[in-house]
Amino acid sequence: VQHLSGIATMTRRYVKAIAGTGCTLLDTRKTIPGLRVLEKYATRMGGATNHRMGLWDAAMIKDNHVAVAGGVGEAVARAKAHGVERIILEVDRIEQIEPGLAAGANHLLLDNMDADMLREAVGIVAGRVPTEASGGVTLETIRAKAETGVTFISVGRLTQSAPAADIGLDFDVA
């Protein structure tokens, strides 16, 4: 209960920090083994939206996949060729956006971008697919990132780093 209450409390702080921006806070799959369902429930109670519950929800093409495939376009094309419908493409450079979209990515994870770079990326995407800021997001940086126009911001620390809430059960014998 302390662990889950800590997650919900931290999540609420992040949700409040982006209130009014139109951006949605997402959790990640970075959970304690065996506790994913409970930890994701706690983030929902804090006001976040659950991202993927598991690898089966969507393909997430990351930098290692791109390196092996030879580029973002080829990585996305290979996933599409194997019948993958929901493809989240992680990009960390502006020049990866157009090839990824042209190949059929239907969600872009904009990794470790500062607010200026996020704003530029959102402008290039121009609403064609949802955009998600991720990587190194803190309570101090989340508002500026949300104000860039990204659709989502995902924060792994919600489940990785939330301190346990101090909950006690004291009896009052009177």
Rank of each mutant, 00 (worst) to 15 (best):
V137R: 04
A77S: 14
M10C: 03
D57Y: 14
L169K: 13
K145A: 11
A67I: 12
V91I: 15
I142H: 01
R86W: 09
K62H: 11
L158T: 01
Y14Q: 02
I153Y: 10
D170Y: 09
E147P: 02
K30V: 02
V66D: 01
N106Q: 05
I61Q: 06
E120M: 10
E147I: 00
V155H: 08
D166C: 11
R128T: 11
A77M: 00
A17Q: 07
G135W: 03
G104P: 06
P163F: 11
V137E: 01
R93E: 11
R119H: 12
G71P: 05
G104Y: 10
R157H: 07
G104T: 03
V125T: 07
A58N: 07
R78I: 09
D92R: 04
A126Y: 09
L26T: 04
A8T: 07
A174W: 06
V150Q: 09
E39D: 06
D27W: 10
V125M: 11
A103K: 09
R78V: 04
T141R: 05
T11C: 10
R29E: 05
E140G: 02
L169C: 12
A17W: 04
S5E: 12
A105P: 04
L118Y: 10
A75S: 08
N106I: 02
S154F: 12
M113K: 07
G149Q: 12
D170N: 11
I142V: 15
A102F: 00
D172P: 00
A162W: 10
G71T: 01
D63W: 01
